[in-house]
C-alpha cells in the first residue's frame, strides 16, 4: 500500500492530472465555524476508474465529494473535472460541469413532496433547463419515456406515480440512482450510498450502481464504511483521516496496519485547528 507522503502524492497528482477525469490539487475546506474539514487534498482519477473513499466519521468524505462540484465552496485548491477547471468556472460553466457529474448523497436527497417520476425527470434539468421538466405532468413525452426507462433500469417502474416519501430507504436510493442515469453524466460521486440501508438492500444498491457504472463506462468515486463492499466494488482505495489524505493504493494491498491507522481517531480531532 502506498502510504502517502507529501512527495509522492503531489507528483502522482501532477502525473495523472493531464489525461484524467478528476484532478484535485491542494484542496482545502474550512467551515465558517473554523472546522478544517479538508486540508491539502491531492487526487487524480483516470477515466473509467472506480475509487473507493474510506475514512472514519468526520474525516471529511462528504465535504470532499460536495466540494468537487462546489456544492460546498472550497477555501483553497484546484479542481479539474472532465477537462474543465471547476474553480475558474462561471455560473453557466459550473452548471455544465455539474450536469456531467451525477451525485448520490449519503442522506438520500429526494424531493419528498413530488412523484418519483418528477424526481427522476429533475436529472434532465442540467441538459434541458425548461420549466416543463419541473414536474412530471408538464414534461414532454420523450422526457417522460426516458425517465421511465431509467426507473425501469433500477427496477422501480411500477412506483413512478408514487410520492417519493412513500418509498423505503433502499427504493429511495435507487430513485436517486435513476436520477443520475437521467442526467447522462460521465462521473458519479456516491457518498456512502448504502449507509442508511440494511446489508441486503445495501448490496442491491451497490450492485445496481456498479452495473450502471460499468455499463456506461463511468468514472466513480464512492465513499464507503463497509470494507467488504470496498473490496468487491473498487479498483483503488483512497483514505482520508482528519481531512488529510492517508492512503492511496490498490485495494488488495490494504494491510491490517493500514486499516488500524485509518480507524484510530486521534483524541483531539486534528481537523479542529482552533
Amino acid at each position: 500500500m502506498n502510504r502517502v507522503t507529501s512527495a509522492t502524492h503531489s507528483t502522482r497528482a501532477l502525473d495523472t492530472a493531464a489525461g484524467g477525469m478528476i484532478g484535485v490539487r491542494g484542496l482545502a475546506h474550512r467551515y465558517p465555524d473554523g472546522t478544517q474539514a479538508l486540508d491539502g487534498i491531492d487526487l487524480a482519477v483516470a477515466t473509467g476508474e472506480a475509487v473507493v473513499l474510506l475514512g472514519h466519521n468526520a474525516s471529511g468524505k462528504s465535504t470532499l465529494l460536495k466540494a468537487l462540484t462546489r456544492l460546498i465552496e472550497p477555501t483553497a485548491g484546484a479542481i479539474t473535472l472532465d477537462g474543465t477547471d471547476v474553480i475558474a468556472a462561471g455560473p453557466r460553466e459550473l452548471r455544465d460541469v455539474r450536469r456531467r457529474v451525477g451525485t448520490v448523497f449519503q442522506s438520500i436527497n429526494l424531493v419528498d413532496q413530488v412523484s418519483v417520476l418528477s424526481n427522476v425527470i429533475h436529472g434532465s434539468l442540467g441538459r434541458q433547463s425548461s420549466p416543463r421538466n419541473w414536474f412530471a405532468w408538464m414534461a414532454a413525452t420523450d422526457t417522460r419515456d426516458e425517465a421511465m426507462e431509467c426507473l425501469e433500469r433500477v427496477g422501480l417502474a411500477p412506483f413512478a406515480a408514487r410520492r417519493a416519501d412513500q418509498l423505503s430507504g433502499g427504493q429511495r436510493q435507487r430513485v436517486a440512482i435513476a436520477r443520475v442515469l437521467m442526467q447522462r453524466s460521465r462521473i458519479v460521486l456516491a457518498d456512502e450510498p448504502v449507509a442508511a440501508l440494511d446489508p441486503r438492500a445495501g448490496r442491491e444498491v451497490m450492485d445496481l450502481l456498479w452495473r450502471i457504472v460499468t455499463e456506461e463506462k463511468l468514472t466513480l468515486v464512492c465513499s464507503l464504511h463497509q470494507l467488504e463492499l470496498a473490496e468487491s466494488y473498487g479498483d483503488r482505495v483512497v483514505a482520508l483521516k482528519n481531512g488529510r489524505l492517508l492512503l492511496d493504493g490498490r485495494i488488495g494491498d490494504l494491510s491490517r496496519d493500514d486499516l488500524a491507522a485509518l480507524y484510530t481517531v486521534d483524541v483531539a480531532p486534528a481537523g479542529d485547528t482552533r
Binding site: 424531493v111 429533475h122 434539468l125 442540467g126
Partner: peptide, 11 residues
Amino acid sequence: GPIDALRSTGA
C-alpha cells in the same frame, strides 16, 4: 438535502 440534489444536476 433536496436543494443540493437539484444543484448537483446542473439545474
